[in-house]
Amino acid sequence: MEFSGLFPAALAALIYLSVASCNSEGDALYALRRSLIDPENVLQSWDPTLVNPCTWFHVTCDRRNHVTRVDLGNANLSGVLVPELGSLQHLQYLELYKNNIRGKIPEELGQLKSLVSLDLYMNNFTGELPASLGNLKSLVFLRVNNNQLRGRIPRELTSIASLKVVDVSSNNLCGTIPTSGSFARFPAKNFENNPRLDGPELQGSVFYETACT
């Protein structure tokens, strides 16, 4: 009799945790909506009064109603990203390419441990590429080309063994190009059009400059 009472309680607790998680993910995405300018109303369905964000357009969830994809590429969005995005712990794809989003890339994106693809190319991002992205051990695609990023390429990225594509071309990066770890296989064209970027480091004639900004 004792065990028969435990199962419904455990199930209720599981449902509560799942709903709470979905609500927190919805809060994070709604914070993003509030920070973006959306002239074409592509985010009109992002209604915070719903139980979870899985019914919103451009959002994909898994069977447990966790957000796994945000697809907002080429949507004529502007504004800035928000640190709340770091709470999307099940997110695998963050697709925000070909917009007019400005400001810094939040360091909190380094908390997205399930992230496979980060596509921020062809925007107006400024500041440095966060070193915290080196925590994304599942990351395969990192494309931030055609922005206004400055500073060095974080060496923390070289420790991500899963990386298959890194494109930082057409920014204002400086220092030298890493050649260790996963960076040993990336073509030179993925680093071009950064006037202050030297390298690759493998040549030995250019030293890694930590002070570049």
Rank of each mutant, 00 (worst) to 15 (best):
G127C: 06
L163G: 07
V70F: 10
T213Y: 06
V168E: 02
L129P: 03
S4V: 05
L94W: 02
R64G: 07
I15F: 12
R143V: 15
S4Y: 06
A161H: 11
N123T: 09
S159F: 09
V70D: 04
V59C: 07
P130T: 04
G127E: 04
E201P: 01
H90P: 00
P8N: 07
P83K: 09
E201C: 10
V206S: 05
S170Q: 08
P154F: 03
E201Y: 01
Q89E: 08
W46C: 00
P106Y: 02
S117A: 11
L72K: 03
A161S: 14
L50P: 00
I37Q: 12
L50Q: 13
T176H: 02
Q111D: 05
A184G: 05
L112R: 00
A12L: 15
G73S: 13
G5D: 11
L77S: 01
D71I: 14
E156C: 04
A161R: 13
L115M: 03
A9V: 06
Y208K: 11
M122F: 07
L136K: 07
P106I: 00
R155L: 13
I160P: 03
G5I: 04
Q44A: 12
L173R: 02
P178W: 09
H58N: 14
S87M: 09
P195A: 01
T213P: 00
E201H: 02
N190T: 10
D38E: 06
N23L: 13
R185L: 10
N52H: 14
L129M: 06
L112V: 00
S35L: 03
R150A: 12
S182H: 04
S78R: 05
F207H: 08
F207S: 12
A31E: 05
N99C: 01
L133D: 11
D71G: 11
Q148K: 15
R155F: 08
N124M: 11
A184M: 09
S182E: 02
A161Y: 10
L115A: 03
K137R: 15
N23C: 02
L129R: 02
N41W: 01
A10Q: 10
P53F: 06
L32Q: 08
E40R: 09
L202C: 13
D47W: 11
D27E: 14
E209P: 00
D62Q: 07
A20W: 08
N74P: 03
A28Q: 11
T176F: 01
N52L: 01
N65I: 04
G204R: 04
E192W: 09
V166H: 06
E25V: 03
P53T: 02
L142C: 05
S18T: 10
G5S: 08
I105L: 01
L109S: 01
G103A: 01
D38K: 05
E25N: 02
G151D: 05
L115C: 03
A28G: 09
S18P: 00
K164N: 12
A75M: 15
L50T: 09
E95C: 00
M122V: 11
L36Y: 02
E107W: 00
I177A: 04
V144H: 09
S78I: 04
R196H: 10
G181D: 10
F183Y: 07
E192V: 09
G199T: 01
H90G: 00
Q44N: 06
G199S: 02
